[in-house]
Nucleic acid binder design. Structure first.
Lengths: 183, 183
DNA sequence: AAGTTTGTTAAAAATTTATTTAATCTTTCA
DNA sequence: TGAAAGATTAAATAAATTTTTAACAAACTT
């Protein structure tokens, strides 16, 4: 192999590493550990990888790669693939960032809406009881009403968030914000 | 104070606690610690709080409250307010979830776009050098081209994310997805 | 069926992150 | 200006995560 060819290959690796570093660094948003982030970013430039390749590439233990890849599968940023011939499992990174965005945020936001709305509904029931209770003092009723209204108001946000999720899921958001803006 | 009045007050507290628990639990999305999440959720039902009130309420140390409140100020979910008369600092929780959403996600997504786009631009420059280098072998040039194209493709996503941020910042997104949907 | 290879689970070690105690610095009021 | 109160920083402790080593289970090969 020629001297300059070797240099070119190194340059390609450096180019990749810059992007790998950036992707890994911003992946804390997705709630993954630095090593899982690193793994995903590495896989982003590969067709597919086995656990042993990951371990060699990142110089980490196999169980560590196993748990990282599991976590990445959970948020659907990595998928298992069948590779005929090989006994090793192979994994591929989701390379479509739109899909990753959709899967991750929709899942998280739905969880937020569900959990908080359920709590709000229950809380409002309790507050209604207090408000309707004829033995309650004016002061207590006023308190209960205040909190009830605050919760009612907050529902607007959760409805909106729910709508946002729906429009991302259905793809309708891309009518408003095209993936490929015409200039 | 009457028996039933006491019961009503407890019921109000229980109602609040349900919502506090839910908010705190879903706040991991915002990358804050459980105690900061707890603090915010508690403040959500108060007009304002001093560090000492926080410490009493959450039964934690003052420096702990100080760092939590600092973190919440960073993501603009809490603001410092002036309270004439008192020497203690007072803090208020941002109660408009739309604002919190906007501030947090726009900030994070802008960071993601900036960091990754800068790395991509640099990497593409390197790859261009390799592609244009007349001494490069065909194999190496093909490799470089492949990565260049992959990066070029990914820019679509970052542009879109950038547009999303802009439309949230400007409020234009609410034309597409109204806060208060007409049925 | 025995032996290998591969992947996962369990327990231990190490690292990081969060919290507290103690000390320092700032501000406010006399 | 000095004393007192309040908030922050620093160092130490505690807690929680992450990572690894080691043992185990499953699947394939011969």
């Amino acid at each position: 192999m020629s001297e300059s060819d070797e240099r070119s290959k190194i340059k390609i690796e450096e180019a990749k590493d810059k992007v790998i570093g950036a992707i890994a660094e911003t992946m804390d948003l997705y709630g993954v550990t630095p090593s899982a982030a690193n793994l995903y970013a590495t896989m982003y430039f590969k067709d597919q990888m086995t656990l042993d390749e990951m371990r060699t590439d990142l110089e980490m233990s196999k169980p560590s790669m196993s748990t990282s890849v599991r976590k990445l599968q959970e948020i659907e940023m990595v998928k298992k693939t069948f590779t005929r011939g090989s006994r090793k499992h192979t994994y591929v990174a989701e390379k479509n960032f739109f899909r990753s965005f959709m899967v991750f945020y929709c899942h998280m936001w739905e969880r937020e809406v569900k959990m908080n709305m359920e709590a709000i509904e229950e809380a409002q029931e309790d507050l209604k009881d207090v408000i309707k209770d004829s033995t309650s003092t004016l002061e207590v009723v006023e308190q209960a009403k205040k909190y009830f209204d605050q919760l009612e108001e907050s529902k607007t946000y959760y409805h909106w968030l729910s709508d946002l999720v729906a429009s991302i899921r259905s793809g309708k958001i891309f009518e408003f914000l095209p993936k490929d803006p015409q200039d």
